[in-house]
Nucleic acid binder design. Structure first.
Length: 243
DNA sequence: GTGAATGTTAACAG
DNA sequence: CCTGTTAACATTCA
């Protein structure tokens, strides 16, 4: 379910509750739920794959992991991990990780790492990559401290669009190609959001889950590459290997 | 029944 | 102590 764009959609779905008071918090989450009762949601935020419910003195951090789901104004059969009741409806989260963060979010999050954010900074990402010249780009893209919000779909699509082989080493990718990759990252993430919103994302994937390269009709490779060993789809023919 | 999937981290081995 | 690997968690679908 969750890469950065999907969490932005979650935030959109939650907006009716912004500035509203939590009447009652329930669920199996291992946090002090009582602290939420009668607190007003100051804002909903996202940082990559993190969904943030901001209150006056603390923030609830929700990570949907691989299988997390949520419901707005309805409930599943199972008990939610976290359920919030408002006067105007309810918000329920399932199969997710819930944390309570005390204090200032700015000390926890580097907003410039979030590819979905206006604050996203390619220069910052480049600086972080400088320390890891031997890292494969397919692993680097999934590093949430550098490219927060990028998941396996965005990784595969951005590399394909930028014509870079996933096994290329960070330090060996020419600056021009790296800039091109960053551009594809941001632009595909925006498309992801738009397509996901209208439920047509699958129709637009050109690499992830594909069998044949749409550019030159050569069979795609699917391999579990890099230290993350995540499924990686690529075309030997049109994606250049830098190493 | 089996395997895989848009993810992360604790535990363990060396 | 650092690094790399494995296990674990949790759900749904083909």
């Amino acid at each position: 379910m969750p890469e950065g764009p999907s969490i932005v959609l979650l935030k959109e779905a939650a907006m009716p509750f912004e500035h509203h008071k939590v009447l009652k918090a329930t669920g199996t989450a291992d946090i002090a739920l009582k602290r939420l009762d009668n607190q007003t949601v100051k804002a909903f935020k996202t940082w990559g794959k993190h969904f943030l419910i901001c209150f006056k003195d603390f923030t609830i951090q929700i990570h949907l992991m691989m299988f997390g789901t949520y419901r707005v104004n309805e409930a599943k059969q199972v008990k939610p991990k976290l359920g919030l009741k408002f006067k105007n409806g309810e918000l329920n989260f399932y199969t997710c990780k819930v944390n309570l963060i005390e204090g200032d979010l700015d000390e926890v999050y580097d907003w410039s790492a979030d590819v979905m954010s206006h604050s996203w900074s390619g220069a910052k990402a480049k600086a972080k990559l400088k320390d890891k010249p031997k890292l494969m780009i397919c692993d680097a893209l999934l590093d949430q401290q550098i490219f927060s919000g990028v998941g396996n779909i965005i990784k595969n699509e951005a590399l394909f669009n930028a014509k870079i082989h996933p096994q290329s080493l960070v330090g060996d990718i020419p600056i021009k190609q790296m800039n091109g990759l960053f551009k594809e990252l941001v632009s595909f993430s925006k498309h992801f959001l738009k397509w996901k919103r209208s439920n047509v994302l699958d129709d637009h994937l050109e690499a992830y889950g594909q069998k044949v390269c749409p550019r030159d009709d050569v069979p795609f490779k699917k391999q579990y590459i890099g230290k993350g060993k995540r499924a990686t789809y690529y075309c030997d023919h049109c994606q250049e290997l830098y190493k």
